[in-house]
């Protein structure tokens, strides 16, 4: 009884706080100073049509590097943490065969999902989306593949090779920015091209391709780690 009262009290206080902070304020009618600068100078300074991408990859590129690092850390902790339980003897897993419909459909749909993922991260500077979203879509294609064929082994050496190469390339592109342009992750090391076309915005598409590959391989690694553990140890 006391516990329920306590829970209700906590919820009520939280609701009050949140509504007082956000609930009754009207939406603004004009941008604040920072956003105005991004919107006015972004097209000349960065050349990306998608302002969110301009903020993520160039204005706050260091943040994104940290974000990718955190994701890498998560993937490696999960790999380490789940691997310690894996004993030497591998009992062959007894998995039920999945249905014919799922298997056939996954063969048709998986390449399309990969294609959409790659499209999303290549066009990250023009349309909604980018490296993280595209990488997540690519990994979801892998999830479908694993659901359809639970016995399938994912090559961990391939995943870690793609991940390390794209991670190193991301950092090297950033350092090239120091050498050739004005600072770390400066995207003007490549030409800006015509605004709003695929080959524009300097190094942003290249950086986003590497981010997409890295995120896709990290998420695939997490999923396959979880999947193999459930199979072998439970």
């Amino acid at each position: 009884m006391l516990k329920k009262v306590f829970v209700l009290a906590v919820l009520a206080v939280f609701a009050l706080l949140l509504f007082r902070s956000f609930g009754w304020t009207d939406a603004g009618t004009e941008l604040n100073e920072v956003a105005t600068r991004y919107a006015e100078d972004g097209p000349q300074e960065v050349g990306a049509a998608n302002l969110v991408t301009a903020v993520i990859v160039t204005y706050r590129g260091l943040d994104t590097l940290g974000e990718v690092t955190i994701l890498f850390l998560t993937a490696s902790i999960i790999g380490f943490f789940l691997a310690t339980g894996r004993k030497g003897e591998h009992v062959p897993p007894t998995v039920r065969n999945t249905s014919e419909i799922l298997q056939t459909a996954s063969r048709v749909i998986t390449p399309v999902i990969f294609l959409i993922g790659i499209y999303v991260f290549i066009n990250g500077h023009l349309t909604p989306g980018g490296g993280f979203q595209g990488g997540a879509i690519v990994a979801s294609g892998l999830v479908l593949m694993l659901l359809a064929n639970p016995g399938r082994k994912v090559s961990h050496s391939l995943i870690s090779a793609v991940e390390s190469i794209s991670g190193i390339s991301f950092v090297l592109l950033g350092i090239l920015g120091i050498i050739l342009a004005s600072g770390f992750l400066d995207n003007s090391i490549l030409g800006y091209g015509r605004f709003g076309t695929l080959f524009s915005a300097g190094a942003i598409p290249v950086i986003y391709i590497f981010v997409g590959l890295k995120v896709g391989s990290e998420l695939s690694g997490i999923v396959s780690n979880l999947q193999q553990t459930t199979k072998e140890d439970i």
Partner: peptide, 16 residues
């Protein structure tokens, strides 16, 4: 452009 778009910064933060 500054008078026609919403704030891009919170969206970038939310992506992170």
């Amino acid at each position: 452009a500054a008078r026609e778009v919403v704030d891009p910064l919170p969206q970038a933060m939310v992506l992170t």
